[in-house]
């Protein structure tokens, strides 16, 4: 039988991998991928806990909301990355230092 702890450990590992990508990568697209990992770890937690809640289905419903939020975040984030690339010819966050030209 798969207990809750199995899911929690897997999602903790995935969360930390995402955190590493956010901290260490020097490429905005890979940072976005790291954020996706973090959101996926959160969704796994929601779904794992939602198994014990048959009355409200809270876990699965909010997992679906979280997937929609992640998709919206990626759409806006990639649009911003494209704009930044057009202005600076670089997507390294270290090079982008001012807000307006």
């Amino acid at each position: 039988m798969i207990t809750l702890t199995h899911f929690l450990v897997v999602s903790a590992c995935l969360f930390c991998i995402g955190l590493y990508a956010v901290l260490a990568k020097r490429n905005a697209i890979m940072i976005l991928v790291g954020i996706e990992f973090i959101i996926n770890a959160a969704i796994l937690n929601l779904v794992a806990f939602g198994r014990y809640d048959k009355i409200n289905y809270g876990g699965q419903v909010f997992a679906l909301f979280a997937i929609v939020l992640a998709a919206a975040a990626v759409a806006v984030g990639l649009a911003i990355i494209l704009n930044v690339y057009r202005k600076y010819k670089s997507i390294n966050p270290d090079n982008i230092t001012d807000l307006r030209d």
Partner: peptide, 20 residues
């Protein structure tokens, strides 16, 4: 991850994950 969602008995979330 979609496969792991299936083990938490969330089939619809798994399919949505793959599609989205």
């Amino acid at each position: 991850m979609a496969g792991l969602f299936l083990f938490a008995l969330a089939d619809f979330v798994a399919i949505t994950q793959i599609m989205v």
